[in-house]
Amino acid sequence: MIKWWKILSALLILYTLVLGMLGPVPHLDILNETIRNLFYHVPIWFAMLFQMGYSVVYAIKQLSKNDLQSDIISNQAAQTGLFFALPGLLTGCMWAKFTWGTWWTFQDPKLNGVAIAVLIYLAYFILRSSIDDEQKRARIAAVYNIFAFVMMFVFIMILPRLTDSLHPGNGGNPAFGKYDLDSNMRLVFYPAVIGWVLLSLWILDVKKRLAILTHKENEQ
């Protein structure tokens, strides 16, 4: 009854919870043991980006085929993605406090970009819920979804790379992959990314089915 990839996601994450704590990591100044956060903080954001990508694919599908099911899936995926942004932000704050010395800094383009991206998606839900007509709602939400995805990509992936940033992988700072992600960490990091993306898909699957069922109930 439970699909194989759902079991796989649970096993992969369980594996990374154990190996992430026990496995060897490079000895680095300032980071110390917090480098292990890489196994938990980063995959959460990967899952969030994946969900937003999933959402925009279904938004385009909605516009080309004009079916309401795609609109429901698109909306649910955006919700799941935004949900994953919450632990991503909180773990990021925690990590920043103990390595950069502050919970949040408004000088950092990566952090600001993420905050703006979250606000853009919050506006998506407000926009979507403010339209009563189903067809109209689906179309306008899909168009805004494409805009939101592009803006999120610009704010999270492009702009932080153009200026100075504390965050690794941006503005001249090397990402962990360049120097620190040794082969031992890769053995935990990649399964963690796959595991969390699959788990986000599992949550989306449950949410989507529930939404479609609710939609059917309302139609009757």
């Binding site: 009854m1 439970i2 599992w202 699957d205 089915r209």
Partner: peptide, 13 residues
């Protein structure tokens, strides 16, 4: 818990 919700939803479907 997620498995439980999933199965319950399948039954409802």
């Amino acid at each position: 818990y997620l498995v439980y919700i999933d199965i319950k939803l399948s039954k409802l479907e």
